[in-house]
Write a protein that binds this DNA or RNA. Structure first.
Lengths: 209, 209
DNA sequence: CATCTAAACAGAATTATATTCTGTAAACGA
DNA sequence: TCGTTTACAGAATATAATTCTGTTTAGATG
């Protein structure tokens, strides 16, 4: 349990390194927990301040406003998840492998970082409004484009993709995402990674006509 | 466009009927639009008040607090969606038909009620914390149970379900849900109902081993 | 119809929360 | 060592949610 938590906060160590960012990391860490435990609206700046034993001044110095904390966390999580995906995807050289690797890396990341995953789900709609929606839009577009190129590159040396491309990513990660939501909300107990093969196989089958 | 909007607000006419509930409906209607346009946090009671030309007293009289508006909208939408599903599901008498009907009724409902669908997605996490989380939990459990019984009833007279039941609903609606999110966020343009057959077929295929 | 009661509404007052502002201390580079 | 930027503290302010008190209206009852 403790090991898991330490590993969860590595995302912060990596993205906000150094001694001078220590309080910054601490604020993000406590904010993440508050957002998950109490919900975004219910956690006040005062709550975070109290947990970090710091001041409002420090918080606003580092993040500008509440939305700033939210998006810092959001983009850190999204980047980490994306990085993990790209690592796995780089190893593949067939469409089937790619599908497996997309599904697996997604499930594994969620299981390894449940707090971050939960937060990603609940914060997305806030970030997609708010002052960082352009940034989010740009990132999404870039990620989508890269994935598209990777997948289409297999069309010619491998199995032909038989579904309209628009719905492809929905078919591949939709079920996994849906199940992870349920797991993170404690509506189901079995770990998503226990169903790695089922989800990967099903995704692959769903692409065929 | 206007027809569509009128039809969207039928959900309110049906669930809060009568002349005395007129303001109640109006508040919910304006709140729904505000939440979708500005986001839940960014819409203030004052904004809603102004759009309805009413008073804070009236709003708090009808809903208690902001969360009350949120959950009234949420449960109205969820009930309507569920009712639509049950209508369609009742007509089926094979597992394959059931899968088709679940996917189709979902896609059609979202396309017919985009504002409500968008709201459902963004409000769920708020409601699942907050004072109505028990109510939500109970409804989810009931819905899950009913769907489970319906689907399992086919196991004996029809195709055998070959996946663990826990992941079944994720396999069936996961891709459709994922695509609808993208559509409601304007990340894709093609109407979900245009892909009805693709999603239904894929879901069915994904269940086989 | 007169009266009574509960629900529907209005708006001022209060409370909670986010944000700004002004000042101080620590780090860091020249 | 000096100057400058960054980090932090906390009081003051602004904004928004909620409460409270009073008034009006609709519907029931005799």
């Amino acid at each position: 349990m403790n090991d898991k938590l330490i590993s969860e906060y590595n995302i912060l160590e990596f993205r906000f390194p150094g001694r001078r960012a220590a309080l910054k990391r601490e604020i993000l860490k406590q904010a993440l927990d508050c957002f998950n435990e109490l919900g975004v609206e219910a956690t006040t700046i005062d709550t975070i301040k109290a947990r970090c034993e710091t001041s409002v001044g420090a918080i606003y110095h580092h993040f500008g406003n509440k939305e700033g904390i939210l998006s810092a966390l959001f983009f850190a999580a999204q980047d980490d998840q994306r990085q993990h995906l790209e690592q796995e995807l780089a190893k593949t050289d067939s469409l089937r492998d790619a599908v497996y690797s997309i599904v697996s890396s997604y499930l594994d990341w969620v299981v390894a970082h449940p707090s971050w995953a939960r937060f990603l789900f609940q914060a997305r709609s806030s970030v997609s409004k708010g002052p960082f929606h352009q940034e989010l839009k740009a990132r999404n577009a870039k990620n989508y484009q890269e994935l598209k190129e990777k997948l289409l590159s297999f069309e010619y040396k491998d199995t032909k993709i038989v579904q309209p491309f628009e719905i492809l990513s929905s078919l591949i990660v939709g079920p996994s995402e849906n199940y992870c939501r349920a797991w993170l909300a404690h509506r189901v107990q079995t770990s998503p990674s226990d169903y790695r093969d089922e989800f990967a196989e099903s995704a692959w089958r769903s692409l065929q006509r």
